[in-house]
Computed example of a mutant assay.
Amino acid sequence: MGPFSSQEEFKDYLVERTSSAVAHHLPALRRLAAPVRAKRHRICFIHADLHGANILIKDNRLAAIIDWEHGGWYPEYWEMTMMEHHYMDFPAMQQFWDVVYSDWVEDKLTLECALWKCAGDTILVDHLGDDFSCPRVDERLKQLTARRTAELSRP
């Protein structure tokens, strides 16, 4: 993919990549993309496929990061959303990345979840499914709400 001349071109590519089977989802995807596109993001060189199998540890220290075939210049949040994709079913790793990324990116992750559901190699939402919720974002917001409620109820 790419190279892209701008952040907008990069996001357009991702949104337009949806197959014709889910083209009716484009308006919803564009709505989810609007807040992400509204903010300028630094472009950084990242691995883009960072997961346990690509991180080598020796003597309890980072020894190497391997498999750079997906590496490239992406928006600064891209590594986090890709790691989220790899660790979707691993709560302990999600907790670890929550600490690493203190600036959590709900709007970006919500958009990426929607794209994962209806674009790429595997379509996870059929033509009748319109559920673009992101369980990870929903759970995090529920936890934040519970924390705020508990704080407000303290004397």
Rank of each mutant, 00 (worst) to 15 (best):
M1C: 06
P3W: 01
S6H: 09
K11I: 12
D12W: 10
Y13T: 15
E16S: 15
T18W: 06
T18N: 10
S19H: 09
A21Q: 15
A21Y: 01
V22G: 05
A23L: 13
H24C: 13
H24S: 15
L26G: 00
L26F: 02
L29I: 06
L29E: 05
L29T: 10
R30F: 02
L32T: 08
L32H: 06
L32F: 05
A33H: 01
A34F: 03
V36C: 00
R37F: 00
R37W: 01
K39R: 14
K39V: 05
R40G: 04
R42S: 05
I43A: 03
C44K: 00
F45I: 08
I46A: 02
A48I: 05
D49V: 00
H51N: 04
G52R: 06
A53C: 01
L56Q: 03
I57D: 00
I57W: 01
I57M: 07
K58M: 06
K58N: 03
K58F: 02
R61T: 10
L62G: 03
L62N: 01
A64I: 02
A64F: 04
I66W: 07
I66S: 08
I66T: 10
E69H: 05
H70I: 11
G71W: 02
G71M: 12
G72A: 04
W73Y: 00
W73P: 01
P75A: 14
E76V: 14
E76M: 11
Y77L: 09
E79C: 12
M82L: 12
M82T: 14
M83I: 15
H85R: 06
H86Q: 13
H86W: 12
Y87Q: 04
M88R: 13
D89Y: 04
D89N: 14
D89E: 09
D89C: 09
F90L: 15
Q94L: 07
Q95C: 10
D98H: 15
V99R: 14
V99I: 12
V99W: 03
Y101G: 01
Y101M: 08
Y101S: 11
S102K: 06
S102D: 04
D103S: 14
D103K: 14
D103V: 09
D103Y: 07
W104D: 11
D107C: 09
D107I: 13
D107T: 11
L109E: 10
T110W: 04
A114M: 05
L115S: 07
W116T: 08
K117R: 14
C118I: 13
C118S: 11
C118R: 08
A119E: 07
A119L: 04
G120R: 06
T122L: 15
I123M: 14
L124W: 10
V125Q: 11
D126V: 15
L128H: 08
L128W: 01
G129A: 12
D130H: 15
F132M: 13
S133I: 12
S133P: 12
C134S: 12
C134N: 10
C134G: 10
E139P: 05
L141F: 04
K142H: 09
K142W: 05
Q143K: 13
Q143D: 04
Q143C: 09
L144T: 12
T145M: 09
A146H: 00
R147A: 13
T149A: 11
A150V: 06
A150E: 12
A150I: 11
E151R: 15
L152P: 01
R154F: 03
R154L: 10
R154I: 10
P155N: 04
P155Y: 00
P155L: 13
P155G: 07
